[in-house]
């Protein structure tokens, strides 16, 4: 299974390398960072400097995962590779998770871009990272969680008739509920019970904390929450994937002709 996972990572890296538009998000990330920094300055304060790194990074991560998740199975179905994969003694969920992980790792380039952009715009040297270990752990676990959640979404896109609409409308509510736009402390208490179920919420909070001078509290538990939510997404995705495959085999729709 581990080898299959690595093979899937390699496959997606090669597919992405052959499709430059996969990296479009890496072009938009510095622009989004610039937008947040300049709006912040125009408002006359610099409270969102950390957010100018956090928001573009996590948005890039999520956009990449969502885009590949939305297309992976559908494309495989169209080009006939889904049939060949289902005929092989390997778990489609593991293959998909591997592909999502490679995309999420590519998404981490966005962090370097956002951090560089904020540093250049600040004009006072490189932006300090007071808690680098927490930051790195947060980035890695967030990538895995994005991949796990994307594994959940992928079969959902096949099972739901209006999947593309879902894909297009899912982003902004999640950015908001994930605390990417503004900290969740600004939300009413009842909404925060929902946001705790979104891994982006935990990722954004911890990433912000890792970029602030104050000590980071409960970092291991917060990292665990990110991993747990990603794992839950992956497990639910695996179950949905089985249902999707079972339905496609019963209905004879593995191949789109």
């Amino acid at each position: 299974m581990t080898r299959q996972f690595w093979a899937a990572i390699t496959l997606q890296l090669r597919l992405s390398a052959a499709t430059p538009d996969s990296y479009l998000v890496c072009v938009t990330t510095p622009l989004l960072t610039t937008f947040i920094v300049t709006v912040d300055r125009w408002a006359g304060h610099q409270t969102q400097i950390g957010n100018a790194v956090v928001a573009p990074t996590l948005i890039a991560l999520w956009m990449l995962a969502l885009s590949v998740a939305g297309n992976a199975i559908t494309e495989d179905r169209l080009i006939g590779t889904l049939e060949a994969q289902l005929g092989a003694p390997a778990s489609l969920a593991v293959t998909l998770f591997g592909r999502m992980c490679s995309v999420s790792l590519i998404g981490l380039i966005a962090f370097a871009e956002a951090w560089t952009a904020v540093s250049l715009l600040g004009g006072t040297g490189w932006m300090p990272v007071p808690h680098p270990v927490v930051l790195i752990c947060c980035l890695v676990t967030s990538s895995l969680a994005a991949a796990g959640t994307a594994t959940l979404l992928s079969p959902l896109y096949v099972l739901l008739p209006s999947a593309r609409v879902l894909q297009n409308t899912l982003s902004y509510p999640l950015y908001l509920l994930g605390g990417l736009a503004v900290p969740l402390t600004m939300f009413p208490w009842w909404l925060r019970t929902v946001t705790d179920l979104i891994f982006l919420t935990w990722s954004a909070d911890l990433m912000r904390a890792s970029l602030a001078p104050a000590a980071v509290t409960d970092a291991p538990w917060r990292l665990l929450a990110i991993v747990a939510l990603g794992a839950a997404g992956f497990l639910i995705g695996t179950v949905l994937m089985r249902r999707m495959i079972g339905r496609a085999c019963r209905e004879g729709t593995v191949v789109l002709t």
């Binding site: 597919l15 499709t19 006939g80 590779t81 049939e83 191949v255």
Partner: peptide, 10 residues
């Protein structure tokens, strides 16, 4: 048979 079932970009 046919052209399907392969990753054309690889």
């Amino acid at each position: 048979g046919g052209e399907r079932g392969l990753y054309g970009r690889l």
